[in-house]
Design a protein around this nucleic acid. Structure first.
Length: 223
DNA sequence: CAATGATCATAC
DNA sequence: GTATGATCATTG
């Protein structure tokens, strides 16, 4: 598919039609070469699915399918359906954040509706051998939304108070703040302990594995 | 061996 | 550098 889907059902149907395909098959269908490893192609799977589903290509801070209000996320899983990695959501704003509310944040918008595409990515598989699982649409339950908002507010409060360096990957129940940069020497503006401008490592919001695991269990059940 | 911290490619 | 797509790899 080279055009954007016109409706939610069209998108879901197109995505589910990919279920069972290997990444090599999908890559071939889209005239894309399969890398031997993801070491230098970390976003390859996500990009492949974007192309296959006609997602809005671009580097703007918005959903993949803005007209449908849907964000596309691939998620690597093992044979038991457990996520193998955390899920990156978006870059975290570190300045001009006073008064920013959860409901107007980029992360809340992106997580308001997600098309999850599980990829069976066990280590014994080459990239091309990995299998596309069953895609499904998800919207956070009131409880999940509450957990996300709580973590977001805790983290953003610390950032606003100039305590970003006290935040680690352990902060938060379902959401975490971690580096999101080219390397550990990258610098961006943030708020210092006395409210003064300081330089720090760019950060991003990630969904912790137990949280995304729960989403998958909720969809597919245990076992 | 899970989880946190570090890193890779690309467009602009 | 920022924003897109994430996974790598060292640490505990």
């Amino acid at each position: 598919m080279s055009h954007p889907p016109l409706s939610e059902s069209e998108l879901l149907t197109a995505a589910q039609a990919l279920s069972g395909l290997t990444l090599a098959q999908l890559a071939h269908d889209n005239n894309i070469q399969v890398p031997e490893t993801l070491l230098r192609n970390k976003g390859w799977i996500g990009n492949l699915l974007e192309i296959a589903l006609g997602a809005h290509a671009g580097s703007k801070p918005m959903q993949d399918f803005p007209e449908l209000g849907i964000e596309l996320k691939t998620i690597p899983i093992d044979s038991l359906g457990k996520p193998l990695e955390t899920t990156f959501v978006c870059v975290t704003p570190l300045t001009s954040i006073s008064g920013l509310q959860w409901h107007q944040s980029n992360i809340a918008n992106k997580l308001s509706k997600v098309l999850w595409v599980p990829i069976l990515s066990e280590k014994k598989f080459t990239v091309g051998e990995r299998l596309i699982g069953t895609p499904f649409l998800w919207q956070p339950s009131s409880y999940q939304a509450h957990l996300l908002q709580q973590d977001w507010e805790e983290i953003m409060e610390l950032i606003a108070m100039g305590e970003i360096d006290s935040i680690t990957g352990k902060t938060g129940q379902v959401l975490q703040l971690r580096p999101k940069a080219a390397n550990s020497k990258a610098l961006t503006d943030a708020i210092g302990r006395d409210g003064q401008p300081v330089k720090t490592l760019p950060r991003g919001f990630y969904l912790k594995i137990p949280f995304t695991h729960d989403i998958l269990k909720q969809e597919f059940g245990y076992n």
